[in-house]
């Protein structure tokens, strides 16, 4: 199965306006890949959280998107990367309610709950890379619910 055109992209994250493009692109790409409304909304919301972290905490960066296929299921991988300060204590950052700024501290942990696969690669002083994957069909769920 070929990847739908217009899914793969690299978008800059440098301003509030860029966050709007990020959300629109993810929404559109997820739609093209056949995501249902709920999965689409979850992925867009996760993207919004992660992109804002890239902007606010990482000092700006980019989002790369890639369409995936697994048998008959299509998925979308989003990679957010920045060359910011990194996350010194990842466990704490992933916990609900922890913020180093004046946020709610729900973004990172919340985004993890909203997607099917979630990975953070962060090195203090070097930067942060967050990769998430969601599938149009909820069946392939590596972090099983039960």
């Amino acid at each position: 199965m070929e990847t739908a055109a217009g899914v793969d992209a690299c978008l800059p994250i440098r301003s509030d306006m860029d966050l709007v493009w990020v959300r629109q692109h993810v929404r559109q790409a997820a739609g093209l890949l056949g995501f249902g409304l709920v999965e689409q909304t979850k992925l867009v919301t996760a993207a919004s959280e992660l992109a804002r972290n890239t902007l606010v905490h990482g000092g700006g960066g980019r989002m790369e998107t890639a369409g995936l296929t697994n048998g008959h299921t299509r998925g979308l991988r989003l990679t957010f990367s920045d060359e910011g300060p990194g996350i010194p204590d990842l466990e704490r950052a992933l916990g609900d309610g922890y913020t180093s700024g004046d946020g709610l501290g729900m973004g990172l942990g919340g985004a993890r709950r909203l997607v099917h696969e979630f990975a953070v690669d962060s090195t203090p002083g070097v930067g942060t890379k967050v990769t998430v994957v969601s599938w149009a069909d909820r069946s392939p769920r590596p972090r099983g619910e039960f």
Partner: peptide
Amino acid sequence: PTVDSLVAQ
């Protein structure tokens, strides 16, 4: 279209 933690806040 999107309600994330910032909008909720």
